[in-house]
Design a protein around this nucleic acid. Structure first.
Length: 822
RNA sequence: GCCUGGGUGGUGGAACUGGUAGACACGAGGGACUUAAAAUCCCUUAAGAUUUAUCUUGUGCGGGUUCAAGUCCCGCCCCAGGCACCA
């Protein structure tokens, strides 16, 4: 390329600084939320920044979301791209404890650094609407939310087991328990029973499940949620206890196997045991087992999975309602207190766990289902015999089951339920794995739960006008160590008056789970300036639900489920008009280094500040986009980033060297094709291919650089800037202004393409013989099948392959290939 | 064990509803420019054979469907993430 013009140097520092300042000054990313005509809420998952600052993985996500947002903006949408941070929580608190600094101070520093880093990556955030969960003006409304649930009976207290670290003397979250040990000090974590606050998410289980049928999310995320909710259909069945008024209720998904129920099992925690204690002949033995089971840590229970233990309750029998057989009752910890009714009917012939248990304790096994009617029984009615190797858990046909004999499993289930309901000893029932959401945290760094405990009035909510219940300043925010949170140490905080009767009362000292903060933040963004309401209705109507939600796959269960639940509750209470918060959810992948997760301990963390300093943020953005599929993540490589820096420089050179020197290029399809494919790729978040298309485009421009005429040069330069803009905003904006435009490129429309100028008028026809490529030839796009066949059969090479044989069949795929079968 | 992704050159990765496997890069090799190096530009780069403008084999493994399979079906193996005695 020859050019007499001096080419300016690509000074990314200057350019990026210039445009960041200009965007800020012109407030181009701040919207009037009440006037926007085509609102598009482009949301990324609430970041939870660590004190060490953002790592490259964060930049990967944030700039990916932003690229999509900028693309939408160029499509004419009013894109709202808010930012904030989720600052409450145990991780930050632990970090502060570790470095011996106060959490408030640390958080302040973290926030400042985080926002500094975020503003360096060039995203189109609306900085006038930030949300930080630890600011009273935010958590006031988190507390308000708690009260709404409380009023509706959806927040309640009950005793529950928590993870307790005896060394740190504190409650741990499940994530802090690594293989049964404390994440920080490695001591064995114990289970401790404490009174906790819960949200009744189980009331919404059916709705949370049902809506999955219509929301437009990827299938894998839906399946995760579905499994988590864990709906199973079956029946509840009552078993009488012989000579007693008590009954045992069980839940089963296989009521059709009731004839094969040969014993029962209660969870060690089952309440019935206390009640019938007097009649238990081997009480000492039973008590010993119960105590052992309770003392077992999570870890030990898991280890014991294969080797089931239990003890028979002697002196008492249950009666199988379907045949009045007396069957023994056992206690075993393979039955969980928390699921179903905490008791089961054991059908060893058709349940793996019951089978193992029966095998160990030599209990009766009765086969009541077979795979096929004509099949010979593998299992005979017998006391355990070692010849039998496995049980049959699948669906089949009922046998040895009285009135069910011969029925298919699904039919047998229905018949049995009918029978149970007629006799009044059971009914159809649905159960879920989903548990109520424990929102209590016995820690300092969270929103205090707005509840007052009064001796006279009991549990009383803090009046809404008194919100927020501010988190008091406490020098010593370390956990107290008696199963209560640090707030319990603060007498001034605890001591209060009952809002109902005025008597001396005490404040609740638990704070709420950070998942509560993040379950509704997206509802707040459009309403940040309203001091007297959490969510402004008009704003919500215009802006919600969220149009695009992008975040990590690790949150596809809890966070997404919790925020769906809260959204439903708020809808039921009339605060919002929709019950599903996110129209589209996209889970992105993670950035690794040498195939491994980046972590401080491995020392393989890529610091984005250094990269931005070295390459400029446009290059970093482009490289991150190019490195792999957004949904899969990718592996960071330094030489890859170098390569991208070279490419950006090349783009810069090409753009500036371009002059009209020639007669014009004949075929300009590349321009239209580029606009089309990059647009398609950005729409489906296929960023890596979008960048590849751009590279192809630039290569084409360089190949033809001396042939373009004036008009073409203009078109090429424009295209070079416009389609690059979402990916590398600063350099694109620089190009745009060099082209003489006054307004920002982001106020510009995504370029149009000519649908009729996408393909060459020639294409390469592939000629196969028996499915193998034997020749290729350039032919006209208009070619008919007959012409194509004729040409193919005339080809020298093909003649050779045909070797005089007549084609049996010729398959012609339009504009692609022709396959001659001989 | 169960669920969900994924397995494609030396590397990262492309390939829409089955239709030219390896787009686009990185790395490597060779060449040009240079006193030299860097930078830049050009060429080669799946493997094997070879008559080098030719053929064969090739998308984790084994089968199958099809004119045609990375793509669909059946049976396995491996990696990553999630769940885990859920009756």
């Amino acid at each position: 390329m020859t050019s007499l013009k001096p080419i300016p140097e690509y000074n990314f520092k200057e350019i990026e600084k210039k445009w960041k300042e200009k965007w800020k000054a012109d407030k181009i990313y701040q919207l009037d939320l009440d006037k926007s005509k085509k609102p598009f809420y482009n949301l990324m998952m609430f970041p939870y920044p660590s004190a060490e600052g953002l790592h490259i993985g964060g930049v990967y996500t944030f700039t990916g979301v932003d690229t999509f947002g900028r693309f939408k903006k160029m499509q004419g949408y009013d894109v709202f791209e808010p930012i904030g941070l989720d600052g409450f929580g145990i991780h930050s608190e632990n970090y502060a404890m570790k470095i011996g600094e106060h959490i408030k101070k640390v958080s302040k520093r973290t926030e400042k650094n985080f926002y500094r880093q975020l503003s360096s990556i060039g995203n189109m955030y609306d900085w006038s609407r930030t949300v930080e969960t630890y600011k009273p003006e935010y958590y006031k409304w988190t507390q308000w939310l708690f009260l709404q649930l409380f009023k509706k009976g959806l927040a309640y207290q009950k005793k529950a087991k928590v993870n307790w670290c005896p060394w740190c003397k504190t409650v741990l979250s499940d994530e802090q328990v690594i293989q049964g040990a404390c994440e920080r000090c490695d001591s064995q974590v114990e289970k401790k029973e404490l009174k906790q606050w819960f949200f009744k998410i189980t009331d919404y289980a059916e709705r949370l499940l049902k809506n999955l049928e219509w929301i437009d999310w990827s299938e894998d995320v839906k399946i995760n949620q579905k499994n988590w909710i864990g709906r199973s259909e079956g029946a509840k069945i009552q078993f009488k206890i012989q000579n007693s008024k008590f009954k045992i209720n069980v839940f089963t998904t296989r009521p059709d196997t009731l004839f094969g129920a040969t014993y029962m099992v209660l969870a060690p925690e089952h309440q019935l045991i206390e009640k019938i204690k007097d009649r238990i002949e081997n009480w000492k033995e039973v008590e010993k087992y119960i105590n052992q089971a309770k003392a077992k840590s999570e870890q030990e229970r898991k280890e014991d999975e294969k080797d089931k233990t239990g003890v028979e309750i002697k002196g008492i029998k249950a009666i199988n309602p379907v045949n009045n057989e007396e069957i023994p009752i056992w206690i075993a910890d393979y039955v969980l207190a928390g699921y179903g009714t905490g008791a089961i009917m054991a059908v060893p012939a058709h349940d793996e766990r019951d089978w193992e248990f029966a095998l160990k304790y030599k209990l009766l096994v009765i086969e009541v289902a077979k795979e096929k009617t004509n099949q010979k029984s593998k299992i005979k009615n017998q006391n355990f015999s070692s010849k039998i190797k496995s049980c049959f858990v699948g669906e089949g046909v009922a046998v040895n089951s009285g009135f069910l004999n011969g029925l298919k499993t699904s039919e047998a289930k229905k018949e049995m339920i009918k029978w149970l309901e007629e006799k009044g000893v059971g009914e159809k029932s649905v159960d879920y794995k989903l548990r109520d959401w424990c929102v209590s945290r016995q820690r300092y760094w969270g929103p205090p739960i707005p509840i007052i405990h009064c001796k006279n009035c009991g549990v009383v909510s803090v009046p809404e006008k008194d919100l927020p219940v501010e988190l008091p300043e406490m020098e010593d925010f370390l956990p107290e160590g008696k199963g209560k949170g640090p707030l319990a140490k603060n007498k001034e905080f605890v001591k209060t008056k009952c809002p109902k009767c005025g008597a001396e009362a005490e404040r609740e000292t638990d704070v709420s789970d950070p998942f509560v903060d993040s379950a509704w933040y997206f509802l707040r963004y459009p309403s940040t300036e309203f001091e007297n309401e959490a969510i402004n209705k008009e704003r919500s109507k215009r802006w919600l639900p969220v149009d695009s939600y992008i975040g990590g796959k690790e949150h596809t269960v809890l966070h997404l489920l919790y925020s769906r639940f809260i959204t439903m509750v708020l809808r039921d209470l009339g605060y919002i008009h929709f019950e599903e918060p996110y129209k589209r959810f996209f889970g992105h992948g993670l950035i690794t280094k040498d195939g491994a997760k980046m972590s401080k301990s491995k020392g393989n963390v890529i610091n984005p500040d250094e990269m931005i300093e070295k390459y400029g943020v446009d290059t970093v953005r482009l490289y991150l986009r190019f490195l792999g599929d957004f949904s899969q993540g990718g592996d960071w490589r330094d030489d890859g980033a170098d390569g991208m820096a070279r490419f950006v420089k090349k783009v810069w050179q090409t753009f500036h060297e371009l002059e009209s020197q020639g007669q014009g290029v004949e075929k300009t399809q590349m321009i239209d094709k580029t606009i089309k494919t990059i647009g398609q790729d950005l729409e489906r978040l296929s960023f890596n291919t979008a960048v590849a298309r751009y590279m192809e485009f630039v290569n084409w421009v360089r190949e033809n650089s001396e042939k373009f005429n004036q008009e073409q040069v203009e078109k090429v330069k424009e295209t070079m800037a416009l389609v690059l803009a979402p990916l590398a905003p600063h350099i694109a904006e620089e190009f745009w202004s060099e082209l003489g435009n006054e307004k920002s490129i982001f106020t510009e429309e995504w370029p149009e393409f000519d649908e009729n100028n996408l393909e060459d008028d020639q294409f390469e026809l592939v000629i196969q013989v028996n499915g193998k490529v034997r020749d290729k030839m350039k032919v006209s796009r208009q070619i008919t099948q007959e012409e194509a066949e004729k040409k193919a059969l005339e080809s020298e090479k093909i003649v050779k392959y045909l070797n005089g044989q007549k084609p049996k069949k010729i398959i012609y795929i339009k504009k692609k290939l022709i396959n001659i079968v001989i």
